[in-house]
Each structure stands twice: as structure tokens, then as C-alpha cells.
Amino acid sequence: MTSRDALQARLEQGIAVLGLSLPPEAVPRLLDYQALLQRWNAAYNLTAVRDADEMITRHLLDSLAILPYVQGQTLADLGTGPGLPGIVLAIAAPGRQILLVDSNGKKVRFLREAIRSLKLEGVRAEQSRVEDVEGQFDCVTARAFASLADMLGWGGHLLAPDGIWLAMKGKRPDDELPGIPPGFALRSTHELTVPGLPAERHLLVLGRTG
């Protein structure tokens, strides 16, 4: 079992490598979230990642890598699972209204417990299919949730006219680009380097056209 001090050192080192400046309380709260996730995961199987060190890298730092691209006052995280990247972003950059969406009841129960115990203001969790969610958001995030065609087909109505859609992918999904529905366009692609993670990571930034 890795000690909290060792996990904190790993997290702080990763944040420094990413070049991020977080609020002073963010690191302890991120570690509280990781500990809660690990505790619940033992009973509810919320994520395939079980090792604490790996959670720091694959969950926390992977989510934090997109922080520089997040914008606006409202954010919807679709297919959030146990809150990735939504809860991580809520802790790292508080002050936004954030909606966490997942269709899995166990995961949403965990999200509500995390929101309560971590005292995350302005964050709520909704158990729903993406296509049934209402509202419009300045920023929409989705982490390896579906193809670009399906993501935007199901959830495109949630993107505000001037909003941005942040699609987190592993390999660069060139084969998915022709499937982007009418009314949306790829604005930019960013190769992300997640400290300690040898796998490829890409962020696609999409927006509305016209």
C-alpha cells in the first residue's frame, strides 16, 4: 500500500510537470477523492484501475492534463464514470457549475457521495442517458466515452452556441473525423503528455459551425 505522502509527492510532481498552478487545497482534496474511489472500488468495481499509484497517473493526472483547455462557467461531463475528468476539474478549478452524467446507478451513487463528502459546491450528478439530458453548457467533456459521431449525435444539443467540446482520446482518431455530424467542426487537436503514462493521449477540441 503506497503511503499518502508518497502519493502526494507523485501527484505534486506530475502537476509541476504539467505546468499547472492549482489552489492550495486542491492536492489534499484530490488525494481524498482518490482514497474514496479506491475504497468504493473494492466493493462496487467502479474502475479497472485498482493500484493507488496508477490512479494518480491514469485518473488524476490524465484528467488534469486537459485543464488548460477548459473554459466557461458551466461544464457537463458525459459518461463521467466515477467522475473523470469532472470531479478532478471541479477540485482543480472550483467556481464552475458542473453536471456529471452517467447511466450507471452505482457510479452515480458514488458521485453523489463524493460531492457530499468532498463538499464540492456547484457540482451535481445525474443518472441519465446523454440524449435525455437537458440544458446547454459552455464546455462539454467526454473521456473515451464513444466515437465522435456518437458523442455529438447523442450530446451535441448540450453544447452552447459558443461552447467548446473537449473529447479525450487515446490514439489520434483520424478515422472518426469524417463522422463528425453537420453543425460541428474540429477546431484543434492536441497531443497530451501525461506524466508517468507511456500511452498516447490526444485532446480534440470541437465547436459549432455557424
Rank of each mutant, 00 (worst) to 15 (best):
Q8M: 02
A52L: 09
D132A: 06
L89I: 14
R96D: 13
R96C: 00
L61D: 11
S147D: 10
A6G: 10
Q34C: 09
W40Q: 05
L166G: 03
G83R: 11
I164D: 03
R58T: 12
W165V: 03
W154M: 06
I15L: 12
V133T: 15
R208F: 07
Q136M: 08
F145C: 04
R129I: 14
A125H: 13
T80R: 09
D138S: 06
E54I: 00
G179D: 12
Y44M: 11
S21Y: 13
A92P: 05
L197Q: 01
A93F: 14
K106G: 10
G207P: 10
A76V: 15
D162E: 15
L159Q: 01
L37A: 13
T209R: 15
P28R: 03
A142T: 05
A42N: 12
R10F: 13
G210H: 13
L100A: 05
D175P: 09
D62N: 15
R112Y: 08
P24G: 10
G170Y: 09
G122C: 04
G179I: 03
R58K: 14
T209F: 10
G19S: 07
D132R: 11
A90L: 01
A144C: 00
A52P: 13
A35V: 11
L78A: 04
M168P: 02
P28W: 09
G196I: 00
N45K: 05
G156E: 02
I91P: 14
V205D: 05
I15F: 06
E113P: 12
H202D: 03
L84G: 10
L84F: 07
P28G: 01
P24F: 07
Y33N: 01
E113I: 06
P182E: 14
L152K: 01
D62F: 07
T80D: 09
K119A: 15
G79K: 03
D32P: 05
A93G: 08
E121N: 08
G105V: 03
A16P: 15
S3R: 05
L84C: 04
Q34M: 14
A6P: 06
G81C: 13
G156H: 06
L99D: 00
V205G: 14
Y44E: 06
L177V: 12
V88G: 05
R112W: 00
V49I: 15
Y33R: 09
V140G: 02
A48E: 08
E191G: 14
R4Q: 14
R109F: 15
G86L: 04
Q97M: 14
V205N: 04
M55W: 03
Q13N: 14
N104H: 11
P198A: 15
G79V: 00
D77A: 13
A52C: 12
L118N: 00
A146T: 03
S128F: 12
L186M: 01
L75F: 01
D175K: 00
G19E: 03
E25I: 10
G183S: 08
A26D: 08
A16C: 11
D53Q: 12
T209M: 13
L206C: 00
S128V: 11
L159A: 06
D138V: 10
I56D: 08
